[in-house]
Design a binder for these strands. Structure first.
Lengths: 234, 234
DNA sequence: TCAAAAGTGTTCTGCATACACCCATGT
DNA sequence: ACATGGGTGTATGCAGAACACTTTTGA
């Protein structure tokens, strides 16, 4: 009787966020197989019988980006009847954050084999997403919401920036994610009070305006804040 | 090839919180069947082929408590290899909040049929839980953490109180959940500023001290705050 | 010399914190 | 009368919000 119940499938789906110039992006694949062939979709795969959920997520991320040790968090599981045409498939959604530059440099990506079932992979502006495969629009919305909430209480935003960045880039990142403008002086005061940043001593080069200082973040303090959290109510 | 993948099972587990007198409680069942017979466990069941996840949760809650429309939120999915001795079972954990008095009044509970596989059901102090079946200690910890976070930003704590309650009861509830003491005057000031409570005009009866006023909460404001959130940093 | 973004300080307001005494009731 | 918890106000400090001008560079 229990045996009969082992008839479901479980997948993981990854909402991979990146930040580029001035907007929050999400990495989507164009499906090369049915169902939903030619639709844009979240990268994901079935959880194999011999791996844990996190291992499946890391495998998908590695296949997609060539990168390991990507920041990841489980968000929500979707398993409504009829969400997958081939049977009862539950999908455990996750969001991940990565630096777009790291992605572009990855060898896997250069060999352009983003995933076995994908024709191509592309960054999309998170605010301009059309109709995705399956219930992926819902999943994306859910993960975006989680990111927004997390960014207010943990310094996760930094996962998206290059190693050295300007304060304006940091502010822009927060503005993109939270869809809200901040006062430059108040923003800097707040960031300063966290004592999270280190002045690298370097500045921007060849910009046609006063070059900005480049900062990196203090890993020790970063790990502490990741645990204790903070309050980004600015 | 896809067919072979439909070999997993998916369950829901419910962490049902209640509040009684002066401590936060969780409703556990004593298992009457293998595996883990005689262990205390979270109420839960396999998701049936014809129901959505939420429907499975509501069914489990109805069977356990006789109650419907219980506040519920999905928390996290656990699917590690070996977490269930009979096969690959993913469990989608949820937490729910209910008034213990409503539970005690429910007809299902009077017929003491908490669940097909349970010998008995009992409220346990959330801080004094022994070894539970499966990975249920981990699941409980996860749900407790979610409750603590939610209680700080949404007025969910009210789901646990009777319709009429005193301010001291409310304060006690928050203190139990957050494991933290508050100053009486500051607590009341904060609650007052939310304009969430209505003075019912009634007071406690037959208490051997000055009787406290009984409040109920304003449903309209409650729904608004549930959406917009608030900041309970007291 | 102009355009473009970087960088910087002060005032005001509101909210969190700390803190102590009188009140109403039952015994 | 006494024990028990209910109920109330004020002063202080800190952090968020609003706000405008000078600096440095490339073109």
């Amino acid at each position: 009787m229990v045996k009969n119940n082992f008839s479901y499938s479980v997948s993981v789906d990854c909402v991979i966020f990146g930040y580029d110039q001035d907007s929050l992006k999400v990495l989507l694949i164009k499906r090369g197989v049915d169902p939903y062939v030619d639709y844009w979709a979240l990268p994901g795969d079935l959880v194999h019988p011999n791996e844990n959920t996190e291992e499946a997520v890391n495998r998908v991320l590695k296949d997609m980006t060539g990168l390991e040790n990507i920041f990841t968090e489980q968000v929500k599981t979707f398993g409504d009847l009829g969400r997958h045409p081939l049977g009862r498939v539950f999908t455990i959604s996750h969001y991940s954050l990565l630096r777009i530059k790291d992605y572009e440099l990855s060898p896997t990506n250069k060999n352009n084999s983003p995933s076995a079932f994908a024709l191509e992979a592309k960054w999309h502006n998170v605010n301009r997403i059309g109709e995705l495969a399956f219930d992926h629009n819902k999943i994306l919305a859910s993960c975006k919401e989680k990111l927004v909430n997390n960014v207010k209480s943990k310094p996760v935003g930094f996962e998206l920036l290059p190693n050295k960045f300007t304060l304006s880039e940091l502010q822009n990142l927060y503005e993109s994610i939270l869809e809200k403008k901040f006062d430059k002086r108040n923003f800097r005061k707040k960031i300063n009070s966290m004592k999270l940043l280190t002045d690298t001593g370097n500045t921007q080069k060849s910009v046609s305006h006063r070059p900005a200082k480049l900062f990196s973040f203090n890993k020790v303090k970063y790990e502490i804040l990741k645990k204790t959290g903070f309050d980004f109510e600015i």
